[in-house]
């Protein structure tokens, strides 16, 4: 039983189904990665899980509760966090204000959560009064993840966290993501860099043309010959 799962979801834009009968899920304290070729419907599936796109078929279950018909804002209250791939910060707000906006709904332990995020990403503490728009790509990504963490989500969803970030920074970012998961937050992410993502993942979902192709633990998928040849470049 997953903490968050999409069960046989079908969705798309207009009459075209981009994701069909696809099932994805993540357990508490685990990382699940959704990988696959371009246009496989990974990001679309993610948006559908968060309610940014209506489902045509299927259900979204969070902690045993059916949240299929809740709008995104309500899902945030239920314990979901989402980091979009692009435009994921408020560029003219300072770093600290960005984080505060993340905790807009729940401001009870604002300072505690700020401390937690600063501890996780120390560089943000140094730059807390700087406009987020002036930061480097990797730092922006940290602000984005930090912002989503501010509500203490049970599940954190990341859409291509490594997009536009250099390989070295990416490695650091993945280490941090693993750290977040180990502290109890479930992480569901979509990644273009399948190999690195699967390495830190407990569970991997390989999608192709909007359908589940393989579902297995990260290591098994990395070991699977078929998967390696088709999707991981040998």
């Amino acid at each position: 039983m997953y903490l968050l799962s999409g069960e046989k979801i079908t969705c798309g834009y207009g009459s075209v189904d981009i994701v069909s009968e696809c099932s994805i899920g993540v357990n508490k304290g685990n990382i699940s990665s959704v990988v696959g070729p371009n246009g496989a419907g990974k990001s679309t599936a993610m948006k559908a899980l968060f309610g940014l796109l209506p489902l045509k078929k299927g259900k979204v279950i969070l902690n045993g509760e059916d949240v299929t018909n809740l709008p995104p804002q309500k899902r945030v209250l239920k314990g979901m966090g989402f980091v979009p791939q692009t435009n994921n910060i408020f560029p003219s707000l300072t770093v600290k204000e960005n984080l505060e906006m993340g905790a807009f709904i729940e401001q009870n332990d604002l300072n505690k959560m700020l401390e937690y995020v600063y501890e996780l990403f120390p560089v943000l503490k140094d730059k807390k009064s700087q406009d987020a728009g002036e930061l480097s790509g990797g730092q922006r990504q940290q602000v984005a993840v930090g912002r989503a963490l501010m509500t203490k989500p049970k599940v954190l969803m990341l859409d291509e966290p490594s997009a536009g970030v250099s390989p070295i920074i990416m490695e650091g970012l993945f280490t941090k993501i693993r750290e977040i998961a180990d502290q109890g937050t479930a992480i569901l992410m979509v990644e273009q860099n399948a190999k690195q993502a699967l390495k830190i993942s407990d569970l991997g979902f390989v999608l192709s043309q909007g359908k589940n192709l393989f579902t297995d633990s990260g290591n098994s998928l990395l070991a699977n010959k078929e998967v390696r040849q088709a999707f991981l470049g040998g």
Partner: peptide, 15 residues
């Protein structure tokens, strides 16, 4: 200010 900066993200943040 957040809303004027990035409307979509502001909605996601529950503003």
């Amino acid at each position: 200010r957040a809303y004027s900066d990035n409307k979509e993200l502001a909605l996601l943040s529950g503003i």
